[in-house]
Structure formats: structure tokens, C-alpha cells
């Protein structure tokens, strides 16, 4: 019961923060042993403004457009993994769960040059970028040194052999924007608490169509693929 109270309280707090109204709810009780913990399902309803109806469609994207993210990547996936698995090390990594509606509203209100938005959840930033490259038939170039990653996530990825680009996020939005307003959009994002570490991480290009290329910190280049299957800690 204590756990339920805690969860309901944080539900309420988040709803206030996001200015979302919880309109209804229902509970189901099942036989003992048929459901070991609490499960919560939610469905949200919202509306897309007419002038922004293309932001989920990946149309009008052109070489030169910028790719922007609102902060550090990989935090959520690793936080969940370290809570779930029995790793013998402690990590300072915490989930980035957040409601992004205010941040997104501010961007869309103040700029008409946001061309595309997507939440890089399961499969991480790499998977969204590959979908985008596939859909547009254009290439994408990402600059590794521009990727915001916390020290904790970097260290855990080194230990487990993961790539932060493949790890799930919860409070992140990946944006494609017209370069004309790139700096302006970045400025708007940085004014919001959930966008303080926003960064331009790459751009759309006419080269290598359909592929996502990473310019590595060390000056090399490699292709970034989507995540296949689950992330597995590697032996070497």
C-alpha cells in the first residue's frame, strides 16, 4: 500500500508539472500470484496544431538541416539496467524521465523552422536516426564529440561495452531544424530546465544516402546501425 501511495503521489506531481488533467482511472485486481507487482497503463490524448502537423512526418527535410537533442543521452536505459541487473558496482546514473510538453511548446511557439521531432526511447538515438535516414533517403552525419553524455553513462558504457547511442531515453526529444534558425532554437531550448544541455549533434547530408555516419572523437568515421535485439553486456 505504501508503494501505491508513493506512486500515486508522484503521478499527481507530474500531472501538475505537465499541466495535464488525469480524467479517469480504474483498477483491476487479479488472483494472487498472477501479477507480481503493480502495473500501470495510461493513454494520453492531445492535439497537433495545424501549422505543426508535419513534425512527425519527416517531410521537407533537406541536406544541411541540423539535428538537435535536448540533453544527455543514455541515462534512462542504464538507470533501469543497473536497478534490474545485479551489477557489482554502484552508479550515479539516474533516469531522465520528464514531461517535455512545455519545452516543445516553447520551441514550436517561437520558431516555425522545427521540421521533425521524435522521442529516442527504446533503441536510442541511433535507431531514430536510422529510421529517419531510411524514410528520407538522405544521409546523416553525427559528431561524436558534440554528443552530450554524462561521465557516469560514459563509464558504464566502457565497462559493459555499450554505445550510448543505442541506449533508451525517456525525457529526450530529437529535433531536425532548418539551419537558419538552429542557434535560435537552441537558445529557446537552453532556457528551459529540461533543455539546459541541448546541443547540435549533427546534420542531414546528401552523402551516403540512407546511412548514419559517426565522425568519431578520434577523427575516424563509422556507420551507426539500429539496435538489433536487446542490449547485452559483452565479454570483450
Amino acid at each position: 500500500m505504501k508503494e501505491l501511495e508513493l506512486i500515486v503521489r508522484s503521478l499527481a506531481e507530474e500531472a501538475v508539472k505537465a499541466q495535464v488533467i488525469v480524467v479517469t482511472g480504474d483498477t483491476k485486481v487479479v488472483n494472487k500470484g498472477k501479477c507480481d507487482k503493480l502495473f500501470i497503463n495510461t493513454a494520453g490524448i492531445g492535439s497537433v496544431r495545424k501549422e505543426n502537423r508535419l513534425v512527425s512526418k519527416a517531410r521537407n527535410i533537406q541536406p544541411g538541416d541540423l539535428i538537435i537533442i535536448n540533453g544527455t543521452i543514455g541515462d534512462h536505459g542504464l538507470a533501469v539496467m543497473s536497478a534490474r541487473e545485479s551489477f557489482n558496482f554502484k552508479t550515479p546514473v539516474v533516469s531522465d524521465c520528464a514531461s517535455l510538453n512545455h519545452l516543445i511548446r516553447q520551441m514550436l511557439d517561437q520558431s516555425s523552422r522545427v521540421k521533425f521531432m521524435r522521442d529516442p526511447t527504446r533503441g536510442g538515438v541511433a535507431t531514430v536516426l536510422n529510421e529517419l535516414a531510411g524514410k528520407t533517403g538522405l544521409g546523416i552525419e553525427i559528431d561524436e564529440s558534440a554528443l552530450p553524455v554524462t561521465r557516469g553513462v560514459t563509464a558504464m558504457c566502457e565497462l559493459l561495452g555499450f554505445d550510448p547511442l543505442h541506449i533508451a531515453n525517456e525525457g529526450k526529444v530529437l529535433i531536425v531544424a532548418d539551419p537558419v534558425e538552429g542557434d535560435h532554437i537552441l537558445e529557446i531550448m537552453k532556457k528551459n530546465n529540461l533543455g539546459k544541455q541541448s546541443a547540435i549533434i549533427g546534420r542531414i547530408t546528401g552523402d551516403h544516402p540512407g546511412k548514419v555516419m559517426l565522425k568519431t572523437e578520434t577523427g575516424g568515421r563509422r556507420i551507426i546501425d539500429s539496435l538489433t535485439g536487446d542490449l547485452l553486456p559483452r565479454i570483450c
Binding site: 575516424g220 568515421r221 563509422r222 570483450c236
Partner: peptide, 16 residues
Amino acid sequence: CGGHTMAIHRFGLQTM
């Protein structure tokens, strides 16, 4: 070594 193969590709060393 698998670790070497991984590092070579991860850092794109072949291109250098």
C-alpha cells in the same frame, strides 16, 4: 582479439 576488432571499428581506425 574480439576487443581489438571492436575498437578498430568503433573508432573507425581503418579509415586512417
